[in-house]
Simulated scan of single mutants.
Amino acid sequence: MGHKTIIRIKRVFTFGFLALFFGCSNNSAEMFRQAQAEAELGSPVRAIELLTRIQNLDPTFTPAYLLAGKMFLDSGNPAAAIDQYKRGLIAGADSTEITRQIGQVYLKQNNLVDAYKYFGQTLNLDPQNIEALIGMAAVLYQQKLYAQAQKFYQQALAEEPKNYTAMNGVAYAYMAQKNIGGALEMFQKAIESNPVSGDAYVGKALALAKTSDVPLEQVQTAFEQAREMDPKNQEAAKTFIKFIDNSAFELDYQIDKTKAYLADFGGDTEALKFLGSLFIKKSKSDGPIWLDAAEQTYKRILSANPEDHEAHARLATIYILTDRPQLAVLRAKMAFEIEPTGTYAALVRQAEAVAARGKTP
């Protein structure tokens, strides 16, 4: 999902509870408890052996397939997890829970066709299944069918009015349909229902950034709060960097926030270019030492991508400003060779003119 809507698989049951819920035999339930213990103690092979025995002895014992699938997912083997779930379906285990789990796995793999199929199967069996409703909404959202996604999120809210994920989902669907007012209202409801989770704060900040009638200070505060509540959310952090590319913000503030973003999320080329441009601006008021910082920033970009023509061109400009015309010519020509535009041709001529003036007659 572009802004990334987060689907959380809520564990509203324990596998021990499921063992009782599905009315399985005492023997199966006891072996299942042993399998749970082995899994918790770090003995997955023994746990899988016990779960396989349960499946053979009591083929409809749903928790055995669910726990085995979860263990394979946790070990990074979704294909084996799906195989476990499908074995459960063939054996006649609880189809509602298993099809939902398969849908979740396919959704995480971005296999939207199969995710849609299995969430649909779950909803055919249980039209009020909240997690399947949310999963189906997520599939439709990623397919850019925002109005349809909104309907499924709203159905989930009808079943559970305080469902945090569904509230955020409705808000993002509103935002995708340019209903910013509706999005902000729903994000605020989500924040009020769960003030310690960062998702809604991030969404609110992203929505505010799309408005034109909200004071910059209010948007800035929203992003700062989102950053505090969800420091690992790169989408919000990057959107904030784009947002502060505005003359209303002080140059030092822009530099500090961009540095912080890069420290947290690594060498984002777009952010590095923005930082380099800020250093060049800073040099106009605070001296050429900031051109050195800009030079190192653009070289960092080229170390990752030697074909970045914009970085070559920026270095050419820096070399002209720092009286290194031969290097300027070299960089300008490299930019032009990679991207032969009129702008770069003019930069080559400028660098060559500066170099010619510096020659001894």
Rank of each mutant, 00 (worst) to 15 (best):
K10A: 12
N163M: 03
G23Q: 15
V45R: 10
A346N: 12
Y344V: 04
P340S: 07
L251T: 05
S75Q: 13
D323I: 06
L278I: 01
N56H: 13
T62G: 03
G266R: 11
F274H: 07
T341I: 08
G203D: 01
A190F: 06
T99H: 05
Y261R: 08
A81G: 09
S193G: 12
W290N: 11
N168M: 05
G267Q: 14
A115E: 01
L347P: 00
Y253W: 14
T5M: 08
A353C: 10
L50K: 06
N124P: 03
P63H: 15
M136V: 04
K144Y: 10
F243H: 06
A91H: 06
V348M: 06
Q177V: 07
A68N: 03
Q150L: 12
A132E: 00
S247V: 15
K238G: 10
H309M: 07
G76E: 09
S193P: 01
P78Y: 07
I130Y: 07
A294M: 08
D230E: 11
Q177D: 12
A147V: 14
T211H: 09
P288D: 01
Q148A: 14
I9F: 08
L140K: 02
L125R: 02
V329I: 09
E217P: 00
L216N: 15
R227N: 14
I134P: 02
A236F: 00
R349W: 05
R331M: 08
S43M: 10
K284M: 15
A171F: 00
P195V: 07
L347Y: 06
L20P: 02
H309P: 01
I7W: 06
I82R: 00
L278S: 05
P63N: 15
T96N: 05
E224M: 11
S193N: 12
Q148V: 12
K284L: 15
S75P: 02
P306W: 00
A222Y: 07
Q101V: 07
K204S: 02
H3R: 13
A156V: 05
P78F: 08
Q84I: 06
K4S: 07
Y118E: 12
T5F: 04
N305I: 01
P63A: 12
S95I: 07
I7N: 04
A332P: 02
R331K: 15
I318A: 04
N233G: 00
F119M: 05
A47W: 04
Y174F: 12
A205R: 09
G42W: 07
Y298S: 01
A328V: 11
A311Q: 00
V348D: 03
G182F: 04
A237D: 03
W290S: 01
L107I: 11
Q177L: 09
I180K: 00
G23E: 03
P215L: 12
D199E: 14
